[in-house]
Nucleic acid binder design. Structure first.
Lengths: 239, 239
DNA sequence: ACACCGCATTGACCCATGTCAAATTTTCGC
DNA sequence: GCGAAAATTTGACATGGGTCAATGCGGTGT
């Protein structure tokens, strides 16, 4: 029993700085512990939630890697994001009390289930959490605007360069290498996210590889010249 | 003085059902009145806020029409949305305490200035407002995902059809015609929003016009066959 | 150890949309 | 009102990325 409560406590979680507000006092931290009701394991390929299901909770990713995607009425699928440990998913469900996209695990994963009623209740008496929730939602809005910029204005190479840089930057913030990645998603999923076909993704990887900017072997990618990627994405930077 | 306080009161605003939670008691309504600090007029072409400016307030549009846009490091501009009366803008500033996009009036406009500190304070003691704020942010996230789907998967005709349908639907909710619109934005701005060039926007308008689906004369558009537009956007619907 | 199957790569060709250019209409400052 | 500037339309042509098809690679289960 003690071990159980120990296990689901944010106060003891090594991802706390990623999910939760920073610089909390011990008492504040304790309040946060009641946010998380349970944990839930999601195995590779399984959905954490699906579009249309009723919305009850937000989820903090503890381990694993997810994609979120929406589909058009005629079945075309758009990946709207890739999420990793420490990120919060489920925000799309708040407006209509039903989820508006699918969240699928790209590798075996575990999430902290935070009933949204808890989140709202605790944020009312706890301004630091309230502000944090607002920031998380706003951050998602800003991220989405960045994706629109990619999709609306950038060419294939720029999209893929931006994608790789973003990915390693986030992995690096979690203690992984800033130059090597094992992609958890297929070429088709990358393409869907970036608004291009899987063949184009593959070709663009090959092109970067021929130019010596990266080294690719299937899912494994090594970034040899990060500055070259930055320059593709933003010709002015790092010139 | 009385007239002043009368003027900025949500409780007397005819747009209340659009901006604010519905079904409030008179006392609740009165609480809401302290949300809005002042009004601000923005004339056509002027920015309500710009990327990089410090964030202090959300804005409820009272009259007029806005676009929001982000730019890439090398200056390419992406319109991320068009906003009309009753809609809330400024959410992008919450994450970093700085605005992350520009909001520009496409016609003379007036907004209600809601200092975000007020919003947070009042929503702490007022769960209905708290929920409402969360829903507004979530709605924006869902809208953005829909735009990603448009940009990532749809062809020019589908994008423009979806754009027109969305626009008249929102105007209709505000009491305007569901078949006639005067566009407040240029072909270039529509194109930027939809990820296509202004020439393509113009050509697609002309194509719809030749097919008898709409009638276009510069900024004035009349929708003759809304079902045809729906079918373009979603081949299954309304067949 | 082998065979299968999903994923990735590569090539050849094509098309939707971008690019460039010119003519026309509308808007707006003076 | 007039003239300049901006917005729109339309045409001719170019091209990035899509489509279709064949091959290669590697992980998985038996």
């Amino acid at each position: 029993m003690l071990t159980e409560s120990f296990k689901v406590a944010c106060s003891n979680c090594n991802l706390r700085e990623l999910c939760m507000p920073i610089g909390l006092t011990p008492e504040e931290l304790q309040k946060l512990d009641s946010l998380v009701a349970t944990r839930r394991k999601v195995s590779q390929g399984e959905a954490l939630y699906r579009s249309g299901e009723s919305f009850t909770s937000l989820y903090a990713i503890r381990t694993g890697f997810f994609k979120t995607c929406v589909s058009s009425p005629d079945g075309r699928e758009q990946v709207t994001g890739f999420q990793m440990a420490g990120e919060i998913i489920g925000l799309d469900g708040i407006t209509t009390d039903r989820h508006n996209c699918n969240a699928v695990a790209l590798e075996d994963a575990e999430v902290c289930v935070m009933p949204f009623a808890n989140v709202e209740e605790i944020s009312r008496e706890f301004p630091v959490l309230q502000r944090h929730v607002h920031k998380i939602m706003s951050r998602e809005i800003v991220r989405d605007q960045g994706v629109m910029l990619l999709l609306g204005n950038m060419r294939a190479e720029e999209r893929l360069a931006a994608f790789l840089l973003n990915l390693v930057q986030r992995l690096n913030a979690r203690g992984f290498s800033r130059s090597e990645v094992i992609l958890r998603m297929t070429r088709e999923e990358i393409g869907s996210y970036l608004g291009m076909k899987l063949e184009t993704v593959s070709r663009t990887f090959s092109k970067f590889s021929e130019e010596g900017i990266i080294e690719v072997k299937q899912r494994w990618v090594k970034i040899l010249q990060p500055d070259a990627l930055r320059r593709i994405f933003d010709p002015e930077s790092a010139v």
